[in-house]
């Protein structure tokens, strides 16, 4: 997802403006001239400055040959979102279903997506879930999300 020079410039500029705008709402402590807004405003100003330079470069380069984004083929957007979707799905499902089933399912989906054969994917998913459970819950004593299966295991 390579952005065009213009888009990158505008995004940088927008981040700077939003940061400055938001920071102006921070209160100033009595008697101090440098409050909690001081650094965020400085950072926002940095974004604005970088955005303006990028904008200048983008406008100057318009006459020249544009940098074309790498071709990613069809459904690139879908492939880009699959991993974040698996992670967020995990965050929603695991508190209910528990660590072992959710981890196995998420690993299975990912492995199938990467083109592993179904049987191998199933074995890998199960092994990953059990190995992580043994490492974190068993050896490191970290409480992992509990579901029916984990309750049954004790």
């Amino acid at each position: 997802m390579t952005l065009s020079p213009l888009a990158l410039a505008l995004l940088t500029l927008a981040i700077g403006i939003v940061v400055i705008g938001h920071s102006r709402g921070f209160p100033l402590m009595g008697g101090m001239s440098y409050g909690p807004a001081f650094f965020p405003v400085l950072i926002g100003a940095g974004f604005v400055l970088c955005g303006l330079i990028l904008l200048g470069q983008a406008v100057l380069a318009r006459g020249g040959p544009g940098v074309s984004a790498k071709p990613r083929g069809r459904r690139a957007g879908l492939r880009l979102m699959i991993i974040p979707a698996v992670i967020l799905g995990y965050a929603v499902v695991s508190p209910v279903a528990g660590f072992l089933p959710t981890t196995a399912l998420a690993a299975l989906v990912t492995a199938l997506f990467f083109g592993l054969r179904p049987l191998s994917a199933l074995v890998l998913a199960g092994a990953t879930a059990v190995a992580l459970f043994v490492l974190f819950q068993g050896a490191l004593r970290v409480p992992l999300p509990v579901g029916p299966l984990e309750r049954w295991l004790g």
């Binding site: 991993i83 998420a106 990912t110 492995a111």
Partner: peptide
């Protein structure tokens, strides 16, 4: 295909 699911699940856990 073996590596990526393992890294992802390790990251989440």
């Amino acid at each position: 295909a073996v590596l990526m699911p393992v890294i992802l699940m390790f990251s989440i856990t």
